[in-house]
């Protein structure tokens, strides 16, 4: 049965999980946990924070699954929750940093997720230059880019996550891409 759960569509798992089936929920978590983790790592720039985010999102998802109108859309929903939680965490971290004084006001989100065990995965030169260009972007632009390209969120969804207008999302995303294109072309 457990193995069968791993081959059934998302809607079946989400429906069962909403009914209280923990095995189905865990199967969903295994299916999309790596994507959630990758997204949270890019957004928070911290391995430990990313795993905290994934855990918090799973707790929230279990509590709110029965409010999900379209069970087949559970993947996009989990990634939206991951985006929101990651942004919340960055805001908390910033508030904390400003309380502890300017000397500690190190923007931890500027830490490149490229530094760390991840480098053990052989990365192409294109990826390396994109990572470098990404970490040099203004924070707001980088968030828009990650929510769009890694989470696959729409302009409207990104706008709600970041609490800005869809027009701002469009502008920031375009500026992010323009800068990234330049950096990448320079590298070429």
């Amino acid at each position: 049965m457990r193995d069968q759960l791993d081959v059934v569509p998302d809607a079946i798992l989400a429906g069962r999980a909403a009914d209280g089936d923990t095995a189905a929920f865990e199967s969903l978590a295994r299916r999309y946990g790596p994507h959630m983790r990758a997204s949270a790592r890019r957004l928070t720039g911290s391995y430990a924070d990313a795993d905290d985010v994934v855990q918090e999102v799973l707790v929230q998802a279990w509590q709110q699954l029965d409010t999900l109108r379209e069970p087949a859309a559970v993947k996009a929903w989990l990634l939206r929750l991951t985006g929101s939680r990651s942004i919340d965490l960055l805001r908390r971290r910033r508030n904390h940093a400003s309380l502890t004084g300017p000397e500690d006001d190190q923007p931890a989100d500027a830490v490149s997720p490229g530094a760390g065990p991840e480098t053990a995965v052989v990365a192409g030169a294109g990826i390396t230059s994109l990572k470098a260009a990404l970490s040099a972007l203004p924070e707001e632009q980088r968030r828009c880019w990650v929510l769009k390209e890694i989470n696959g969120q729409s302009y409207d969804e990104i706008a709600r996550t970041l609490n800005i207008s869809p027009a701002s999302v469009r502008g920031r995303l375009a500026r992010a891409r323009i800068t990234l294109v330049r950096e990448m072309e320079d590298w070429r």
Partner: peptide, 13 residues
């Protein structure tokens, strides 16, 4: 490509 790389680095469920 970056996403594929990140996903591989995130490990398996």
């Amino acid at each position: 490509e970056l996403f594929a790389n990140d996903l591989a680095a995130a490990g398996s469920g």
